[in-house]
Simulated assay, not measured.
Amino acid sequence: MSAVANQTGKPEDEAAARGRALYEYGPTSIYASRHDPRFPYCLYVPPNLGQTGEKPELIVAMHGTGRGFTGYRDAFSAFARWHNCVILAPLFPIGVMGDGYRDGFKYMREGDLRYDHLLLAIVDEISERYRLSFERFGLFGYSGGGHFAHRFLLLQPHRLWGVSIGAPGSVTLLDPTRDWWVGTRNIGELFGQEPDIAAMRQVAVQMVVGAADLETWEITHRPGGRNWMPDANHAGRNRPERLAALRDSFTQNGISVRFDLVPNTPHDGLKVVPTVEDFFAAELAKLRGARKAA
């Protein structure tokens, strides 16, 4: 039976296919999360997805405090085409509790929200839409996104094959003598789970920061600030020092880290994207090579 024609004279199934190609492939439209419509996202989906015979992989590009989520989606789009990847760029807006708070997603909990669970719900949603399995994925985050990326790794290591942690202003060390967010002493009480160090060792980890990323005005915690707690600044004065402290915390626990101090680079996430792409390309080659050898 032929398709029913719509008012333009084109079959409905052809119109649906054209709409899908226009809005669901390439740089997509912005979608509201089905799980919680307060949290939208966009994607880059290669137009030839699923036609190469190689399983597509997912890379999540998490925005920073400025919420420039489409910029990171677009920055990784060429990589996605060449490496058969879907890029997911979520948006966790400022002030979802009505209070103008900028930092909720960085610390994983805000009111009754768990931001790691919000991301996993979006991943499940796009897996269903594109009929793909993303049991594990890559995650990149820079600045505020670097906060999110390393804390997501602490809470959900079994969902990642790789993580790139870019220039977080503050870090959570694997320190059982200090409370969250500075350390991990009470993580079980807050999140219902303890850090799974063995699972974290199975995740490829990159830490990346510009060598000229030395300003401290935004990252120095002071008494009375919403995120203030004892030892809030003890990991270092600036972002390179704090990221190095996080690296040392990881390596002391047997977690391997690729540490990239990018020369002549200030606090600019788009400038480190080529270094991050190099990391993801190497890890994708390992992942796919192991799959073929199995």
Rank of each mutant, 00 (worst) to 15 (best):
E283K: 15
N48Q: 14
T177P: 06
P40L: 09
F92L: 00
W228N: 08
G26V: 01
P223M: 04
L22H: 00
L155S: 00
N233Y: 07
G225N: 13
D13W: 02
N84V: 06
A3Q: 09
T8P: 00
D268V: 08
R226I: 07
H35R: 11
C85T: 04
G225I: 02
Y44N: 01
P274T: 03
V203N: 02
E57T: 10
E110M: 01
E54W: 04
Q252M: 07
G104V: 06
E12T: 04
F39A: 11
D179N: 05
Q206F: 12
P223K: 07
V208K: 06
P168A: 11
P274K: 10
F69Y: 15
D213K: 07
P11G: 15
L154N: 09
G19C: 04
G104D: 13
Y72R: 10
G224E: 07
D99Q: 07
R73G: 09
R222I: 01
F280H: 13
L270N: 12
L190H: 08
A16G: 02
A3F: 04
K55I: 05
G183T: 01
D231Q: 11
F137P: 08
G141C: 09
I87V: 15
V209C: 14
A294P: 07
G100N: 08
Y72L: 10
G144W: 06
S127I: 06
L173D: 04
G254A: 00
M229R: 15
P157I: 03
W228R: 05
L43V: 04
I187G: 01
N264H: 15
S77I: 02
N48A: 13
L132K: 11
Q193G: 09
S127A: 15
G53Q: 02
H35M: 05
S143A: 10
G145P: 05
P223Q: 06
G188N: 14
F105S: 15
A244H: 13
L287C: 09
Y72P: 03
A121P: 10
